[in-house]
């Protein structure tokens, strides 16, 4: 007997749910719970991680990320404006920068600014400075593209209205166009912060002292010292979520707010 379209859709849903349940059950059965409980979910032995995972690890992750974001945001804005410039040299420079820093792994950038640049110029940078510059340089490339899209999404009439009131180009940019562009790109910009938070872990290539550990390094250190297998990494991972999930919620709030203000 032929089914109606609605019946077919319902059957299809049941089949999909069934496959999902079977897959989960199979995974649970296949797991070696005995080993897992000592080497991954061994929460009995992680006591010594506290409170330093928060006072050192979380704190340093937040510091590296915040400094990197500051550099990335100002650099990104500069690059976005260069990319929209009528002066070709600026456009080429910005395009070259963006393609380069988006194209190479962030790890290489950390190595370059952690070892290469200090060697080349005979300077010595502390870890915080390297994290700030490396994260910032990479973030600037991504943020530049986001901001450029935001600047272009501001209607042309806004610039015309501002210029008609006698504002010079730069003043119209600063007071009228850029504030609106930032509102438009707030959700994708939050995304950049989340990516940056995770990339801050790459600082481990520099060889850190204990007080410079950020979350991932702190977790890796725990693997060797606590005898709880990979459990410390799991804890470190959980603390990333403590940062990133509120950011996501914040981004969603911005998004729904800007959706509401649109006519």
């Amino acid at each position: 007997m032929a089914m109606t379209a609605r019946q077919r859709a319902r059957v299809s849903l049941y089949v999909q749910a069934g496959i999902f349940v079977v897959a989960v059950v199979a995974l649970i059965l296949a797991t070696d719970w005995k080993t897992i409980s000592t080497s991954v979910f061994n929460f009995g032995k992680i006591g010594p991680m506290f409170p330093d995972i928060i006072l050192v690890g979380l704190k340093n992750t937040l510091i590296y990320t915040a400094l990197g974001f500051m550099v990335g945001l100002s650099g990104g804005l500069l690059l976005a404006l260069m990319k929209l410039s009528s002066f070709p040299l600026y456009r080429w420079l910005a395009t070259g920068y963006i393609e380069f820093f988006r194209g190479i792994p962030a790890l290489l950038v950390f190595i370059a600014f952690g070892y290469g640049v200090p060697l080349a110029f005979g300077v010595s940078w502390n870890v915080t400075v390297v994290a700030m510059i490396s994260l910032g340089m990479v973030a600037a490339a991504y943020i530049a593209e986001t901001l450029r899209a935001g600047l272009q999404a501001v209607p042309k009439g806004q610039m015309e209205a501002a210029r008609s009131l006698g504002m010079p180009q730069w003043r119209a940019m600063v007071s009228i166009v850029i504030p609106q562009a930032f509102r438009i790109v707030l959700p994708p910009l939050t995304n950049e912060v989340i990516l940056l938070t995770k990339d801050s872990s790459l600082i481990y290539v520099l060889g850190l002292t204990a007080s410079q550990y950020e979350l991932t390094k702190f977790g890796r250190d725990g693997i060797s010292s606590l005898g709880a297998g990979l459990t410390p990494l799991l804890v470190a991972g959980a603390f990333y979520l403590v940062i990133t999930i509120p950011l996501s919620l914040l981004a969603r709030k911005f998004e729904s707010r800007s959706a509401r203000t649109k006519r």
Binding site: Q158, E160, A161, S164, G166, P179, Q180, T261
Partner: peptide, 20 residues
């Protein structure tokens, strides 16, 4: 241009108010 435009008010079809 900027000095001249101060003497000239412009009203657009799409208003172009600053939404922020």
């Amino acid at each position: 241009i900027d000095k001249m435009r101060r003497k000239v008010g412009m009203v657009f079809q799409q208003f172009n108010l600053f939404p922020h």
